[in-house]
Structure formats: C-alpha cells, structure tokens
Simulated scan of single mutants.
Amino acid sequence: MSLFRLDELPDQGFSKVHVPLMGPSLCVGFPSPADDFVENALELPRWLVPNPPATFLGRMAGDSMHDAGIFDGDIACVDRSLKPGHGSVVVAAVDGEMSIRRMVVQGDTARLAFDNADLPVYALEELAKVDVWGVVRFTIRWHISRARQRR
C-alpha cells in the first residue's frame, strides 16, 4: 500500500477550494453548469482540484457504472479541462441529458459504454447529439448507511 507523506503533497499543500455541487443527479438529467444550477459547494483540498474554475461536482443516480465502482448516491468530481481518451470516465450530454459513461476508442471510432455488463455500448456517431463535458477525476462515497449518518 502506498501512502503520501506530508512532504510529498503537491505545492498547494493544505489550501482549500470551494467546488460547486450541481443538482439534481447526473444520470437522470442535469442542467449545464452554465445554467448556474448550483445546489451548494464543497470545500476540498486544493491538491485534489488542480483546476477549480473548470471543476464541478455532481451526484450520481442509477447503476449504469457499478462495475467501475461508481454507485447511486456517490458524488463525482468532474474536470472540464481534461482531454478524454480511451478508458476515461466522462460526463456527456447525450441528446441534452447528462450521463456518466466510459469512453472506448477503437481506431477512429469513439464509443460511450456503461460499466454495467447488462447495458449496451453504442458509437457516438449513431447519436443525434453528444457533447463530452468533462472527465471524472474521482468520486466520493459514504461507507455507512444514510440512516446512521443522521445520528
């Protein structure tokens, strides 16, 4: 197991940034960050968010990415400044509805795949309109039940 030592943290050290939390959930429809649909903001360590102006958070809904370890209720940190490539988990507007998928590039063809073996893969050019909004840097997940959190 590899752990960071304090002297190995990036130069930003322990400074913090506020990252907007957009709502509602990413997988069931999500207005663009340009619509200023900010539900709240979370304070995160600066070294987790290298480009704050291009970063936003969104809640996950559904089970389309459970094989990637992304579950209903998780919070995804999305960086719009990163260039997506083969294997990237991306947030994409598919016919105007925001969704999270894995990008698969084979030759000249890019596809968006669910990380759930029960759901289909399809080529981007088969869709009416697809815009990749950003790459998921990481997710935040509670490991205790919501009922226990309220105590």
Rank of each mutant, 00 (worst) to 15 (best):
V17H: 03
V17Q: 02
V17C: 04
V17G: 04
H18L: 15
V19G: 04
V19S: 03
P20M: 00
P20G: 00
P20S: 01
P20Q: 02
L21W: 04
L21D: 04
P24F: 07
L26M: 08
L26T: 06
G29R: 04
P31S: 09
S32C: 07
S32P: 06
S32H: 10
P33C: 01
A34M: 12
D35F: 04
D36S: 11
V38E: 05
E39V: 10
N40L: 10
A41F: 11
A41T: 12
L42F: 09
L44G: 08
P45A: 12
R46V: 08
R46D: 11
W47K: 11
L48G: 05
V49T: 03
V49W: 03
P52D: 01
A54S: 11
A54W: 06
T55D: 01
F56W: 10
L57Y: 03
G58A: 07
G58P: 01
R59V: 11
A61V: 07
G62Q: 05
D63K: 08
D63V: 07
D63T: 09
S64P: 02
M65I: 01
H66V: 13
H66K: 12
I70W: 02
F71Q: 05
D72Q: 02
I75N: 07
A76W: 06
V78E: 01
V78A: 03
V78G: 02
L82W: 10
K83C: 14
P84H: 05
G85H: 09
H86N: 10
H86G: 05
G87Y: 02
G87V: 02
V90E: 04
V91F: 06
V91M: 08
A92V: 05
A92G: 07
A93F: 11
V94R: 02
D95L: 04
G96W: 06
G96M: 04
G96K: 06
E97F: 12
M98Y: 14
I100H: 01
I100E: 01
I100P: 00
Q106I: 15
Q106W: 14
G107Y: 12
T109P: 09
R111D: 13
L112W: 06
A113Q: 14
A113T: 11
D115H: 06
A117I: 09
D118H: 10
P120T: 03
P120K: 04
V121A: 09
V121S: 08
E125F: 12
E126C: 07
L127V: 13
A128I: 08
K129E: 13
V130W: 00
D131Y: 06
V132Q: 00
V132K: 00
W133M: 09
W133R: 08
W133D: 06
V135A: 01
R137Y: 07
F138R: 00
F138E: 01
F138I: 00
F138V: 00
R141I: 03
W142F: 15
W142M: 15
W142T: 14
W142I: 13
H143N: 15
H143T: 14
H143D: 14
I144H: 14
S145I: 12
R148L: 15
R148E: 14
